[in-house]
Amino acid sequence: MAKSVTSALTLVDWRTRVASLYAAVRAESDPAEGHRLWRETRAELFATHPQSPTSGWDDPRQEIAYWPYDPALRFELPVLAAEPDERDVDGGDDGSVTMQRIGRVELPDPVAGSLDVWWLHQYGGGIFVPLRDGTAGHGSYGAGRYLLDTAKGSWFGGDDEHLVLDLNFAYHPSCRYDDRWRCPLAPAGNTIEARVEAGERL
């Protein structure tokens, strides 16, 4: 079914606001203060915006829960080589999405795990790093969370060889809130055993 003009324009507004939020987080010199800004702005967006994944809830102002900010869980990591892989995932109304593995990162202690780095091969593209950790189903959404999705503006910086990953900004995909959404989920290469008690929680 084709989107209405209103739906299309409110979706553009949602994506613009989310991208602006991450730009403000990057501009903040104190990552913990950036995290506070991120939480508060997301709460307002989720409670009031027509494109919020919680818009169908009886009480869209229901609080989104987070673990406290932990500076030990922010990393700047080299992107290492990985075997090529490609998979198509159901994107719901957006059609199928092709994910191409472009590398991997090694998370140091206290996490100590490997995460694949994906490219979303669609118009505009984007880097995508999902995470399914030991809290999945026992503190966070069972299918995992997202760390980076640059097609949606989620980006903390890096250069041509490194990514900044701040696990404190892990967030639940929209399908956690409403099954009308179809979300790419964390494959085996983005699953770690450690409990990452940071970011959004149940």
Rank of each mutant, 00 (worst) to 15 (best):
R104K: 15
Y69C: 06
V196E: 07
T10A: 07
R36E: 01
Y146W: 13
D90M: 03
D159F: 04
G34C: 03
A24T: 05
V117A: 12
W67N: 13
Y123H: 11
S20Q: 14
L148K: 15
W38L: 08
D30G: 08
G144K: 14
A47R: 11
G157A: 04
H162D: 00
Y141M: 09
I64F: 04
S140N: 13
K3C: 02
D179G: 12
R201Y: 02
S20C: 02
T6G: 10
A136I: 03
V89Y: 12
D94W: 07
D30H: 08
R176P: 05
A112S: 15
Y22P: 09
R36I: 08
C183F: 05
S52N: 05
Y177M: 15
A43N: 08
Y177R: 07
G139C: 00
S154T: 14
P184T: 09
M99F: 09
D160Q: 07
G157L: 09
E63L: 11
W155L: 10
G134C: 05
T98D: 10
A47W: 04
C175L: 00
G134D: 08
G137I: 09
R74K: 13
L9C: 04
A112T: 14
H138D: 11
H49P: 15
V79K: 01
D70M: 10
A170N: 04
G95R: 08
T48W: 09
A8E: 11
L167E: 00
R36Y: 00
V5T: 13
E44T: 13
T48R: 14
T135I: 07
L163P: 01
W57G: 12
R104P: 03
K3P: 00
D109A: 15
H49C: 02
K3I: 05
Y123L: 11
A143I: 05
G142M: 05
F75H: 12
W119D: 11
Q122V: 02
L115C: 04
A32M: 01
D88I: 06
P50C: 02
Q51L: 02
Y66M: 01
G189W: 06
Y146L: 04
K3F: 07
G56T: 14
T48V: 08
R26H: 04
Y66P: 00
A136C: 10
